[in-house]
């Protein structure tokens, strides 16, 4: 089943196309990564899919229906925004109490456990929380809501390493016990890459990649060795990045079946390319393409 489907979805802000002709599909019950540089359109896409803003053109189906003004869809959707605003004087306690009434599958016990784990001062005014504590409020909401469709927009902001690990482990454990569709937007790609099953990369409002994470993790290899040997090996290949120092070179290229074996046979060192590095290469390569 498909949780989300968009066709030619487009959103203009004045003359800027923040989302430009995006046709995507997100399968149900999986963890999807929504990646891209700042300003690539990730937040705009999530706002469109949760009915917070209106599309300029195009179509979308969320849980089989249009999300616009649709309580049936929205009750099953939880959107944790990076810059969520709360009413003045609200404390985490108040937010969680309201959330309990909003989300049919809310788990109060999990919420209590998370508050303790994140050491969130639940009776302090939200205005006085640190950036990391504010992120923790969102994470607790997102996890304890158990919404069939959950969006996390940069949930890591301001979180220390311990809290990031907490989020990852709780998300993984809760997802395993209560499978649902999760769309995770983050710049900390390396930290979540083993959790993602499907990856969408947005670049300037367009879909640069929509692919299985496993495929991407093996999509490129890094070969290094003597410069002339690296050059000979990569001639005609789809090279993403080349670095040279003296008589040595390191080249990142798209892997083809048998590439690893052939590179080793040619006496080159072969290393895997992490999802994060692959995304970086794909993004900068795309940005450089029109100039070349």
């Amino acid at each position: 089943m498909t949780a989300i489907e968009t066709r030619n979805l487009t959103k203009h802000f004045r003359d800027v196309a923040a989302i430009d002709d995006v046709s995507l599909s997100f399968a149900e019950g999986r963890v999807h990564g929504l990646l891209g540089r700042n300003g690539a359109g990730k937040t705009t896409l999530m706002k469109l899919l949760t009915g917070q803003i209106f599309a300029t053109s195009g179509e979308m189906r969320v849980l089989g229906q249009s999300p616009l003004e649709n309580p049936q869809v929205l009750a099953q959707t939880c959107f944790i925004q990076e810059s969520q605003k709360y009413p003045d004087g609200f404390r985490p306690l108040d937010v969680l109490r309201i959330a309990e009434g909003l989300y049919p599958a809310w788990d109060q016990e999990l919420a209590r456990e998370l508050i303790a784990d994140f050491r969130l001062p639940e009776k302090r005014a939200i205005k006085k929380l640190s950036r990391g504590q504010l992120s923790a409020v969102g994470i607790i909401l997102g996890l304890a809501s158990r919404a069939p469709l959950t969006f996390f927009d940069e949930p890591y902001l301001g979180l220390d390493a311990v809290a990031r690990r907490l989020f990852f482990d709780h998300l993984l454990a809760d997802f395993a016990d209560h499978p649902r569709t999760v769309i995770l937007s983050t710049h900390h790609i390396d930290e979540v890459s083993n959790l993602l099953e499907h990856v969408v990369l947005l670049d300037e409002g367009r879909v640069a990649i929509s692919e299985e994470a496993e495929t991407l993790q093996n999509a490129a290899i890094e070969v290094s060795g003597r410069r002339d040997e690296v050059m000979a090996f990569t001639a005609g290949a789809d090279v993403l990045h080349l670095q040279e120092i003296g008589s040595l070179a390191t080249s990142t290229l798209h892997a083809e079946p048998g590439s690893v074996e052939r590179a080793r046979a040619a006496g080159l060192q072969v290393a895997p390319v992490s999802l994060q590095n692959y995304i970086v290469h794909r993004t900068t390569a795309a940005a450089a393409a029109p100039v070349a």
């Binding site: 999986r30 963890v31 990852f168 482990d169 993984l172 454990a173 997802f175 395993a176 016990d177 083993n194 959790l195 993602l196 099953e197 496993e214």
Partner: peptide, 15 residues
């Protein structure tokens, strides 16, 4: 189990 492995290795249960 799948879920035990996933939690221990910090990978997606599907993997």
């Amino acid at each position: 189990s799948t879920n035990e492995l996933a939690a221990f290795l910090r990978i997606n249960p599907a993997t």
